[in-house]
Design a binder for these strands. Structure first.
Lengths: 211, 211
DNA sequence: CCTGACATCAACCTTTCGATTGACCGGCCG
DNA sequence: CGGCCGGTCAATCGAAAGGTTGATGTCAGG
């Protein structure tokens, strides 16, 4: 390992999780937890100081910016620190948004400490660190680009999620009910479901629509 | 405080969270973290040894028993330890199930360490410990019994939100479809809606169910 | 220019859902 | 004790949603 330790920034809104990460990572001699942030905004501000090599970033903050938005802001500047996503969920949309935003890795919070430490080292070295489960999901997606919803389909799905009937949707979007049904059939096929409620459930899980 | 420290069992499937709780609670001189469990099943087995005063229990385990089920199993025996729920969510359904199962308190994971320690002491003393946000939700429920869904109704509604059909729900809960429909009629009336999708939308907006 | 993806609509049919009515049972409370 | 509430179930009926087929127009891109 190099002589200079890896300088870490922990970004998570849960004090308990930050304490846990600190406890786990501080036992590694080549890591140094330099600071913590309890909001995504603070993480962005701190990351801009250039005092960190790796940022451990949660995705869900109680309020304010989302973790992937913060990641994009952090990695946008030159000489930015690496960002390692550390989250509870592994939905397609989350992973894609994070990778899109420039994350160097994606870990699940149930990962064992050794895996966590290994991922930090990998990220610090400038390489990509994906948890096996996450990598698997990404491969799945590549193989089936079919499930990307069109703008119109998302528009319809959003209204379904708000509880509107096909008739109400058709009026809201100035369509016939037939067209709404047609969109829904395509949505069901892409999401692999067979009803409006399960479509909403699937889309919510994948963060395709806003709730 | 008494001379004997409070003996704690940590039940959470995330190693990082367990480490965080340990770090936070071990700094309190009157607490001693005796053991950890990474599944609800193990927590039940350990709790039965009688070596603990308070169990800190997560609700969502990746696999196996749910935290509220484990809580019920633990508190069912005489001289059982107190169970303190420690979770990320604060929906009506979760809170009711936990209280029903005999939990002595309900905390959110974003609680500051001091609040956490105070709750453990309260539980150890045999009193009830509810986070302010949680207590507030319970009060709300008491004040407006008109739209207060029963435990069973919430159970049904939760499954509707997960995209299940009436037939699937009836099988999941070992009911007839007639009963599921009956519950749904009551749910619609209480929420002031007339379809399952809008019921889910309304319930999500009022944080009655978890998404 | 022609293909493919997207969006639009119609007609038809099957399944599910929602509404209604009525019933039974167990527990709780006044 | 006698309601009342919550939970359970049945039967029925109309309305809504879901599935299928097929058709048209537009527009971008090879």
């Amino acid at each position: 390992m190099s002589a200079t330790p890896v300088r870490l920034l922990l970004a998570d809104d849960h004090p308990v999780v930050r304490a846990g990460l600190r406890a786990v990572l501080d036992t590694e001699p080549d890591f140094r937890v330099v600071a913590e942030a309890d909001t995504a905004e603070r993480a962005v501000a701190l990351a801009a100081t250039g005092e960190f090599d790796v940022v451990l970033m949660d995705l869900q903050f109680g309020t304010g910016l989302h973790g992937s938005e913060a990641t994009a802001a952090i990695t946008a500047v030159p000489d930015a620190p690496r960002v390692l996503i550390l989250t509870t969920y592994d939905t397609d949309a989350d992973i894609l948004a994070a990778v899109e935003a420039g994350a160097s890795g994606y870990l699940l919070k149930d990962a064992p400490p050794e895996e966590l430490a290994a991922a930090v080292r990998t990220a610090a070295a400038g390489r990509s660190a994906l948890a096996p489960a996450v990598a698997h999901r990404l491969m799945d997606r590549m193989r089936t680009p079919a499930e990307a919803l069109t703008k119109r389909e998302l528009e319809v799905l959003q209204l379904v999620g708000e509880g509107l009937s096909n008739l109400q949707i058709s009026k809201a979007l100035f369509l016939s009910q037939a067209t709404v049904k047609s969109h829904l059939v395509h949505i069901y096929a892409k999401l692999g479901v067979d009803s409006r409620t399960s479509a909403v459930a699937a889309a919510t899980a994948r963060r395709l629509i806003r709730r």
